Amino acid sequence: MTQQKKIPKIKKIKEELNKEFTFLKNVFSVMSLPLQMKGENEDNMDIEIVNDNEKSNEDVEMPKRARSIAELEEKLEKIKSQKKLSFKNKLQKKSLSSKLNKKIKKTERVKAKVKPVVDKPFADMLKASVEEKPKPNIAKPVFNNEGKLVFSKFDFANVGKRERPNKAEKDPKKILENLKQQEERLKQLEEKEDSSKVKEIKEKIAWKNVLQKAEGQKVKDDPILLKKTIKKMDQKKKQSKKQWDTRVQNVEQKKTERQKKRSENIAKKKKEKKSKIIKTSIKRGRVVI
């Protein structure tokens, strides 16, 4: 009886041990166990933790960066070949395209900077051909009387424009002064007995007057008429001055009248107000006359 009872107990113990063993096995398979590494001395022991799942940094291969234009183009084509692009791929595509453009521009700049090497004899030939070419005759700029640049042989700047006479010619006082100066000059020449010069000057003046009349200008060479016009101008000035003075007087008079009227109206209103106050106070018996 005792032997029969012992057998089931042993079985139970074995089953429990197996269960624990399997449990521990599973636990240790998941966990990373420390391994003992012997050094030079057996007493000094180094412990290293080895994990099968994790790879060391040395084993992990980093993705290679594309440096040349061809590599960049290949990468771009790979990304473009994908039907559906994720957000990360889109960003990568954008960065690659920008890098490619920069690279291409850089190469173009470098090519532009590099000068082509020319052989010495060929360079000498080029210089000789350049020197042999005759220089074109550059015409000097032409300016008109007013100092403006003329672009052709004919000056069309003043076409359709009338030459305005000077202001001095319109002013009768200045014209009279000029006539007096001319007469004085002629008298001086006559006194010196230069009759030929006097004749020349008179002829010039006559021709000038004729040309002015032909152009339709009024020739003002009569001193009597000029004096009359000056008198008229002075009279007009006097009249306008009188008119202005009378206007100023009228304005001032109207101003004083308005001010007077205003002051009278204000005084009248004040009196009326006072009289009203007195009347109301008499009615109420506050004031006794």
Rank of each mutant, 00 (worst) to 15 (best):
E132W: 13
F156T: 12
K187N: 05
K170G: 09
L149A: 07
A123N: 11
K180Y: 05
M62H: 08
V110W: 06
K115Y: 09
L149I: 10
F87A: 14
S68Q: 03
S68A: 08
E193Q: 05
S86P: 15
N158G: 02
I79K: 02
L126K: 13
R185P: 00
S97F: 01
K80S: 04
L72Q: 13
E73Q: 02
E191A: 05
K93Q: 07
E132P: 03
S195G: 02
I175R: 13
E183K: 11
R65E: 06
E77Q: 10
R185K: 14
K80M: 11
K105I: 03
K187S: 01
K106H: 09
F87D: 15
F143V: 03
S98F: 00
K120H: 07
E74R: 04
K180I: 09
V159M: 15
P172G: 09
L189E: 02
A70S: 06
V117N: 08
N144S: 03
A123F: 08
V150L: 08
K113Y: 07
F143C: 04
V142S: 08
Q181C: 05
R67M: 12
L186H: 01
D194I: 01
G147D: 03
K88L: 12
S196C: 01
S98W: 00
E146A: 09
L72P: 02
K75A: 01
S152P: 00
E108S: 04
Q182P: 06
E71N: 03
S86T: 15
N166C: 02
I175M: 14
K90H: 09
P63W: 07
K80C: 04
K75C: 00
F156V: 11
S195V: 03
K120I: 06
K103R: 04
K120V: 12
S196A: 03
R109V: 15
K140P: 03
V118W: 00
K80N: 07
K105S: 02
D124A: 14
I138Y: 01
K167R: 09
K78M: 05
S81R: 05
E177I: 00
K94S: 02
R162M: 11
K88M: 10
K153Q: 15
P121N: 12
L179A: 15
S98D: 08
E74I: 02
E108M: 11
I138D: 07
S152A: 10
K153G: 14
V130E: 13
Q82M: 07
N178R: 15
P172L: 04
K106A: 13
K103V: 00
L126T: 11
V110T: 07
A128F: 10
K192I: 05
A168V: 14
D124P: 00
L179N: 15
R185I: 04
A70L: 09
E146K: 06
E169C: 04
N137Q: 11
F122D: 13
K161S: 06
K84G: 14
S129L: 15
K161D: 08
K83M: 07
E77R: 04
K84S: 08
L91T: 10
E132G: 12
A128E: 14
S195I: 01
P134C: 12
F154N: 08
K93G: 07
L100W: 00
A128H: 14
I104R: 12
K173E: 15
L189N: 03
E108N: 07
K180L: 04
K133N: 10
F143K: 06
K94E: 05
A70T: 09
P172T: 04
V142D: 08
N89R: 10
L176H: 00
